Amino acid sequence: MTRKIAVGIVVYHAGVELLRRLELTSADGIEVYVFDNSPDITNVRELAEHHPGIHYFTCGKNLGLGVGISTVCANAHQQGYAALLFFDQDTGYNSKTLSYIENNYVNNIDAYKNFSAIAFKAGGEALVQDVPLLINSGSLYFLDKLKTLNWLDCSYFVDSVDYKLCLDSLNKGYRIGSCGNTPGFDHVTEQADSRYRIAGRTYSMRAYSWSRIKDTVSSNIKLIFSAIKSAQFGFALRITKLLAVYCAFQALVRIFNTLGLFKRD
């Protein structure tokens, strides 16, 4: 173990760019832990067979993010890592991204002892600040804290996996952080969003499938009740507002697409 962090990714129908990033990460000497939710497509498994630094896991079917992230984190922890940097499969990064986050971690180990996770992103200041919520992609997970939380909640499939971790951390007294100005971090280019020009401003939106909307709504409602049950009423209110905004945008983007409103890039 020469590097201080590992990288984890959960894949589903992996594309060429993801395979390139996996090779890049392994070539940089960073161990990669991959959970494959589409094992019938063999490209990731075949890549791992030729790269000892890429550790491949699957359960033979799509079990979602909760199981996938828990698996890569638990295995990295078992093999001696204290921190794992997680990326969505459609998040771009490069060697500078990995070095920046690793150096940030090494230089601040003592300062981060009460954090369960810190989300790194492209925009904002290069300063860690406490935040109430974070998303999975770009998050550096501190594995001893996640083990105490019994990893991520595997009853969540895709949506709200990250927000449930935030609630669990809040209940346990762990901090959640965010740090900006991360070089090479790209959570935009490979996203399937369309751009809409409204009142001089550009908005990125996507019309999700009805099954995805159903999962989002049901997961958020479940999370809201979990927050209320643990007397985290401010957290419950925050998720309620986010869910209302999400539903409003899903309605708007369908209206825009149907009527052909506003210029799209």
Rank of each mutant, 00 (worst) to 15 (best):
S26H: 03
A27M: 13
A27V: 04
A27G: 06
A27K: 15
A27S: 11
D28W: 08
D28K: 15
D28Y: 11
G29D: 02
G29I: 06
G29R: 01
G29Y: 05
I30C: 00
I30G: 01
E31A: 03
E31M: 07
E31Q: 05
E31W: 02
E31F: 03
V32S: 03
V32W: 04
Y33L: 02
Y33D: 06
Y33E: 00
V34A: 00
V34I: 11
F35K: 05
F35L: 00
F35H: 10
D36V: 08
N37G: 08
N37V: 06
N37F: 02
S38D: 12
S38M: 07
S38V: 02
S38Q: 03
S38E: 05
P39W: 06
P39D: 05
P39E: 08
P39H: 13
D40P: 05
D40V: 14
D40F: 14
D40I: 14
I41M: 07
I41H: 11
I41Y: 09
I41N: 13
I41A: 12
I41K: 14
T42D: 09
T42P: 10
N43T: 11
N43L: 04
V44T: 09
V44G: 07
R45I: 05
R45Y: 08
R45F: 11
R45T: 06
R45W: 12
R45V: 10
E46I: 05
E46P: 01
L47S: 08
L47P: 00
L47Q: 13
L47V: 03
A48S: 13
A48F: 07
E49M: 11
E49T: 11
E49N: 14
E49L: 12
H50N: 15
H50L: 09
H50Q: 15
H51F: 14
H51V: 13
P52S: 13
P52D: 15
P52H: 10
G53Q: 14
G53D: 15
G53K: 12
G53S: 14
G53I: 00
I54M: 02
I54C: 02
I54Q: 03
H55K: 13
H55F: 03
H55S: 07
Y56I: 09
Y56P: 09
Y56Q: 12
Y56H: 12
Y56M: 07
F57R: 07
F57Q: 01
F57P: 06
T58W: 02
T58I: 13
T58V: 14
T58S: 15
T58F: 07
C59A: 15
C59N: 12
C59W: 07
K61V: 10
K61D: 01
N62K: 06
N62Y: 01
N62M: 09
N62S: 08
L63W: 04
L63S: 00
L63H: 04
L63V: 10
L63Y: 05
G64M: 11
G64R: 04
G64I: 05
G64H: 00
G64Q: 08
G64K: 03
L65Y: 09
G66P: 12
G66I: 12
G66T: 08
V67Y: 08
V67H: 10
G68V: 03
G68H: 09
G68Y: 05
G68C: 09
G68N: 01
G68S: 04
I69M: 12
I69D: 02
I69A: 14
S70F: 14
S70Y: 00
S70D: 08
S70E: 01
T71I: 00
T71D: 02
T71K: 07
V72I: 15
V72A: 09
V72P: 02
V72F: 04
